[in-house]
Design a protein around this nucleic acid. Structure first.
Lengths: 141, 141
DNA sequence: GTTGACTCGGTACCGAGGTACAGGGTGTAT
DNA sequence: ATACACCCTGTACCTCGGTACCGAGTCAAC
């Protein structure tokens, strides 16, 4: 298989495959007399492995680790599990951050909607002053 | 105030302030005889506004919009609210994606823990085959 | 034997949000 | 008058995950 075939099969573009090769995610394939890359059957599945791991949130360097772990034997399972658990924790953290943002934004939008009479837009005001508006009316008791 | 004073007051570094100026987030301040930037009192608050908006998830170009809206009058409130609501929706979407990743990862880690006897690490296997392991035992009924 | 699709390596670029450095000028305290 | 901290512009660099372009070589079909 040539690079274009692998790319088509894996749903990637050619540059990306070469990039992965440079990054060490894809082994350098054999070369034909012309210098064209000549991939075996395992190339496309390997690329799909990479895509799936990306979908789970792994970075390319983490994926490089996963690929190494895959090729070592079962002794690597705790390591793999640790990698996944760490990633999970990072995702949780990110979710927490985003949730905090969401809450703050929701409060602002809410305050803006309910106080059509206020002289200043509560959203802008909050950004100016650095505090979130209190949901109900009395903010200075 | 000179740039270093503003930077200190806002907790930013000098390069960043100059970068914001280039990006149009900070107006070009007056210059003293020496060519030094000479900031007014509003500079540091403006920088803090930017930081707060960033904390809420706004990008620098969205913040540029917010700053414009701030300076226009109250007619801009619906626009501001729309901006915030859009951002909120984007955050929600991001949270959904991350949650999906989290669920998938949790399943993998769980499967890996409960099947210490399986020949292959279920995490690696899932990445190889492109499916999430079923939580309980029977996956092929 | 020529056209057209493919491939090669190398390099540059994208966007986002900065950071760093070089080579100069300035402000001020002592 | 001389340190020393500060400022100036301009440019290059960083991470991340690619994408784009270049000029040149190659392969396959007709």
């Amino acid at each position: 298989m040539r690079i274009g075939d692998v790319a088509r099969e894996a749903g990637m573009n050619i540059q990306t495959l070469r990039y992965y090769e440079r990054r060490g995610l894809l082994a350098e394939p054999a070369r034909g007399r012309s210098g064209y890359r000549d991939y075996g059957e395992s190339a496309a599945p390997q690329v799909r492995f990479i895509k799936r791991a990306q979908d789970l949130g792994f970075s390319l360097s983490e994926i490089a680790e996963l690929l190494e772990l895959r090729d070592r034997t079962s002794r690597s399972r705790p390591t793999t599990r640790r990698l996944a658990a760490t990633k999970m924790a990072a995702i949780d953290e990110k979710i927490r951050e985003l949730t905090a943002m969401r809450v703050a934004l929701a409060q602002l939008v809410d305050a803006c909607e309910r106080s059509a009479d206020a002289p200043e837009c509560p959203i802008i005001e909050a950004l100016d002053l650095g505090r979130t508006p209190v949901a109900a009316g009395r903010s200075d008791v």
